[in-house]
Design a protein around this nucleic acid. Structure first.
Lengths: 189, 189
DNA sequence: AGAGTAAGGAACCGATCAGTACAAAACACC
DNA sequence: GGTGTTTTGTACTGATCGGTTCCTTACTCT
């Protein structure tokens, strides 16, 4: 019984996520967000609460479109050997770089950035990192050559993943990243 | 034959480095830098060229006070086994956290942050990461159980180091970090 | 068609950003 | 003690930050 929205809040959120992903929280200014989302201030503040709440929402969206799929990949029973799943998960990093995507991982960049000074953001980051860890642990439990130190290796794989993503964003060569993955996988099988 | 400086430019640079280290490049506003360095705008712009040039200088200072010592640690012949040197280098990360320092590594945070959008910064970051890699390679070459894939493992250790530093800054538990190191070291010996 | 309601758009808000201009202050030299 | 030179501190610049106000526009319902 009123004027209808001219945009889809869901795709606008997705657009916002991509701006945050590309520029990071600090550098994603409101004008940049608005142009990326294709709307003006009025609509923006009508539909969303502000920059930071929107950012937290986009972190959740990132969970849906990136973290959850990664976890499913790491749990995929189609690949019997868990180390194959882990390889697929890690190679997807260099695959992205090869495809021209140097943005890295929104979660990892957030961990390195605003998570340090903002407790709300830190809490979400820790939660999502924990889920990634769970995914790696699941895959590790399914390795043929079952490793003894499951916990340690799961933590190590999260660290490796974060390092790969950060370094890819900083412009490290894709060859170096792939060599890094080679070395890790050698340990797992 | 004029009014003398009331501050030591060298210690001011060191102070600036600590502000950048703590807050990151973007969040280190000029007022914050000034209060951290203990001087006013006039003196600041007389002694330094501006924020970004100063930041690049502080990256070099960080090289002196953190990167170079790490490389020396990794080359220290007092520890015959290179894997012991690597352990010392990696444990220094959790040691810092235990001592209450959650700032992580200025180089790694910069890699995750402004290195993505600023080529000048990216160049320095890549150079310093390359030096870290060299340090790890030196240590690897001195392992008793000489690893075959020297290059791959050097790259992997840099990745691991960056991951550890980023995750420590994001508030990951020191136990998880130590487990991560455990897993890596197991591979090396 | 008229009334009611919510979205869109643009002007505006105070705060803060990095950087500059310039006068007051403090020294060295004569 | 005056003169010259450099530092220091402050006031200011224009731009941009995230956020608000409010009027116009476009729709639904009666």
């Amino acid at each position: 019984m009123a004027r209808p929205r001219e945009f889809d809040p869901d795709t606008a959120m997705q657009d916002a996520m991509n701006v945050f992903w590309d520029f990071g929280y600090e550098d994603a200014s409101l004008p940049r967000l608005l142009s990326g989302m294709g709307l003006t201030r009025g609509s923006f503040y009508k539909a969303f609460e502000g920059k930071k709440p929107l950012f937290l929402s986009t972190l959740r969206r990132y969970e849906d479109i990136a973290v959850q799929p990664a976890i499913e990949m790491l749990s995929d029973p189609a690949l019997l050997d868990g180390s194959d799943r882990i390889e697929r998960a890690l190679r997807s990093v260099t695959q992205a770089v090869r495809a021209g995507d140097q943005r890295g991982c929104m979660l990892c960049s957030t961990a390195a950035g605003p998570a340090y000074s903002d407790p709300d953001i830190q809490a979400v980051v820790q939660e999502l990192l924990g889920k990634m860890r769970g995914g790696f642990e699941t895959a590790l439990a399914a390795t043929l050559q079952t490793p003894r130190a499951l916990n340690a290796e799961a933590d190590m794989l999260v660290t490796q993943y974060a390092g790969l993503r950060i370094l890819s964003r900083s412009g490290l060569s894709v060859d170096a990243l792939d060599r890094s993955i080679d070395a890790i996988l050698k340990q797992l099988r």
